[in-house]
Design a protein around this nucleic acid. Structure first.
Lengths: 185, 185
DNA sequence: ATGAGTGCAAAAAGTTTGCACCGCT
DNA sequence: AGCGGTGCAAACTTTTTGCACTCAT
């Protein structure tokens, strides 16, 4: 018998998946929620609430979505298993899609904040085993390895050093300080 | 030739280690900092800033340490590599000792917030290898596996169910809601 | 109709910071 | 003396919430 239920069913759009989730909870897929989900799944990048709020700056379909609603919706998307927290950067929770995508982990650069994704099934497998030992019913994991990324580790070369150091100082501690979720100022 | 430099030199007290760190930075081990370090290393439990502030509620050696100083000192202890962030619970960063202790990871219960420590060298080894591939200079990692701990997974038995469910509701969603870092109210 | 959902602004909560005074070195 | 450190309170950030109005179902 062929399995009709793939481990991850990607044939349904995130909106539809979200509607299903909401329905089972007696909740509604409002226009605002729909706008937010579409915006979040418009690309596969990591994001935080502020990113989404910024992207929804101007009205979509004649609707301006408030920050509060984005917070409320993101929380529900997380409950629904469509997104998940991956890290915390710049004092904000960073999310990523968790729908139709394989489990993976991240390196996070202490200097520039860049997130590097990698996949390693062995880690998940090990965790499953350890969880079993503890009688822990594991639902997922979050693994950030911190350090310095290849780009940041590479110091400025030769006679450019001095100039780069200025940039280093000005840019608050990194040659590529603002790769991820830059803050104004 | 025998190695005099063990991977982790535990023969020096945390205070002394901290002093060394501060000295190299032209900073001082003040009485306040000393008090905070001693308090943090008085036991091996996880802690957050609020815990330490609470523990230093009454004067030590005739000194009352302010919350601001605890924040400032904790940040420096982290820089010094004496402590590290392990998780975020109840909206607070949770720290643990990172001096003279082997690397380990945690399960964190979504219901009661309990942190379960476990050690698994294979995970670190795998990470080292992956980091190498990416040219990432890894300094450490943080791995939290989330889910439900054995105690919370075990539903109340038989005819106690109803009573326990009341507790379940009252205690905001968990039979052992406040195992870690309880909040007032 | 009716109750869930939204926007707005105010409130929380944790963390940071400016400033005047204090105290190591 | 000189400069780093502290306490206090105000400032800042991110996130949550109360409330009156709106809108799916």
């Amino acid at each position: 018998m062929v399995s009709d239920l793939a481990p991850k069913d990607v044939s349904v759009s995130p909106e539809e998946k979200f509607r299903e989730f909401l329905t089972t909870r007696g909740k509604r897929l409002t226009q605002e929620r729909d706008i937010i989900v579409r915006e979040i799944f418009a690309d596969h990048e990591h994001f935080d609430v502020d990113d989404i709020v910024a992207r929804l700056d101007r009205p979509v379909d004649g609707r301006r979505v408030s920050r509060a609603t984005v917070y409320r919706t993101v929380a529900q998307l997380e409950e629904a298993g469509l997104i998940r927290k991956v890290a915390r950067a710049n004092d904000r929770e960073v999310y990523e899609h968790d729908y139709g995508y394989p489990q993976h982990d991240h390196f996070i650069c202490d200097k520039c904040g860049t997130l590097i994704e990698f996949r390693n099934d062995a880690i998940s497998a090990i965790l499953e085993n350890v969880a079993l030992e503890f009688g822990f019913r594991m639902s997922g994991h979050r693994l950030e390895a911190s350090g310095i990324c290849a780009d940041c580790a590479k110091p400025p070369t030769g006679r450019h050093r001095k100039l780069d150091m200025i940039w280093f100082n000005v840019a608050a501690g990194c040659w590529r300080r603002w790769t991820f979720a830059p803050r104004p100022g």
